[in-house]
Write a protein that binds this DNA or RNA. Structure first.
Length: 248
DNA sequence: GCGACAG
DNA sequence: ATCTTGTCGC
């Protein structure tokens, strides 16, 4: 696991914390972490892909983080990791990672065998400083990541065709930073961008492969589903593998 | 100065 | 993000 170097990141025991940071300091961290990301094509073959998401009760300081691991061949969930944590940063557009990444890192640490790719709810490099939550998480942990957001944050884009699989580019000054991807027929697109350890083309290829019968690609959809079950007390905290017999 | 603004 | 019923469209 790759940890950031200086005092701007406060670590107690095994907990990463972002607290009492002003936005100027947060930007500094993003600029430092940005140098650690790679957007070169992923080489390792993908056997498993994880979806990562956060859930919380309104007005609550408690956040629930979940990572669900799916078999890449059939996109069936095979394991999940759930963690209950506390908020240490408010939600500010452009700084989502400071609010959600600490809890996701805790969930990551509970997983014995790391997934090959992580699809995270939010943007990758489709961000003002190219450091959306997926890029941030990837740079911090050395994992291969991509972002899948339900809404645009930064960049210009055109409505893609209405067919499942249609896509258009998210652009910022001549530079392509992601895609508006139609994951389902006649449904609003999702916004795809690489985070770390993969290329723009890789992120699009993976999004296409993970598109099922819902707007959200399977990894993100399952993560959202599972973490909500966890928040409402229907799943237990910790790492759990799913019984093969219950899967079909 | 004004509008936009992931979850 | 979350709280929620109906409702419109395929």
């Amino acid at each position: 696991m790759v940890w950031p170097d200086d005092k701007v990141h406060i670590m107690n025991e095994d907990y990463l914390r972002y607290s009492d940071l002003n936005l100027a300091e947060a930007k500094e961290i993003q600029n430092e972490l940005r140098e650690k990301i790679s957007l070169k094509p992923n080489t390792k073959p993908i056997q498993t892909i994880a979806g990562a998401d956060i859930s919380l009760n309104r007005f609550s300081e408690i956040i629930f983080a979940g990572i669900v691991i799916l078999r890449y061949s059939d996109l069936q969930p095979i394991a999940y990791s759930m963690v209950e944590s506390k908020t240490s940063f408010p939600y500010i557009p452009g700084f989502l990672a400071f609010r959600e990444v600490p809890a996701l890192v805790q969930a990551l640490k509970q997983i014995p065998v790391q997934p090959d790719v992580f699809m995270i709810d939010g943007h990758g490099i489709a961000h003002p400083r190219r450091m959306g939550i997926a890029a941030h998480f990837g740079a911090l942990t050395g994992t291969v990541t991509m972002g899948c957001a339900k809404n645009i944050l930064f960049g210009k884009w055109q409505e893609p065709g209405i067919q499942k699989g249609d896509y258009s580019l998210i652009i910022n000054k001549e530079e392509t930073i992601g895609y508006a991807f139609r994951s389902k027929f006649k449904t609003n697109p999702v916004f795809i961008s690489p985070g770390n350890g993969m290329s723009l083309a890789d992120s699009l290829d993976i999004a296409i492969r993970c598109a099922g019968n819902y707007r959200l690609p399977e990894p993100t959809r399952r993560a959202h589903e599972f973490v909500n079950l966890f928040r409402t007390g229907k799943l237990k905290e910790g790492y759990h593998e799913l019984s093969p017999q219950l899967l079909f």
